[in-house]
């Protein structure tokens, strides 16, 4: 992560995990995201149905 270079060492921002380029790629890769869209929709429906029962 190029932005990572500007973070001050030992600051709060120094410690959290940062996504790798591989992770960032999958977050944008459309065929994979279509699949995630379907899965996420089903998960939300499950929550909604539970909330209405």
């Amino acid at each position: 992560m190029e932005n990572r270079l500007v973070i001050d060492k030992y600051s709060e921002q120094y410690y959290p995990p940062t996504p790798t380029n591989f992770t960032l790629f999958w977050r944008k890769f459309i065929p994979f995201q279509i699949l995630r869209f379907i899965i996420l929709t089903l998960k939300i429906i499950k929550i909604v149905v539970k909330g209405h029962s």
């Binding site: 709060e12 959290p16 995990p17 940062t18 996504p19």
Partner: peptide, 11 residues
């Protein structure tokens, strides 16, 4: 925090 660090947002 990870979301912010990824974007260089301070807090």
């Amino acid at each position: 925090e990870s979301y912010f660090v990824e974007r260089n947002i301070k807090w």
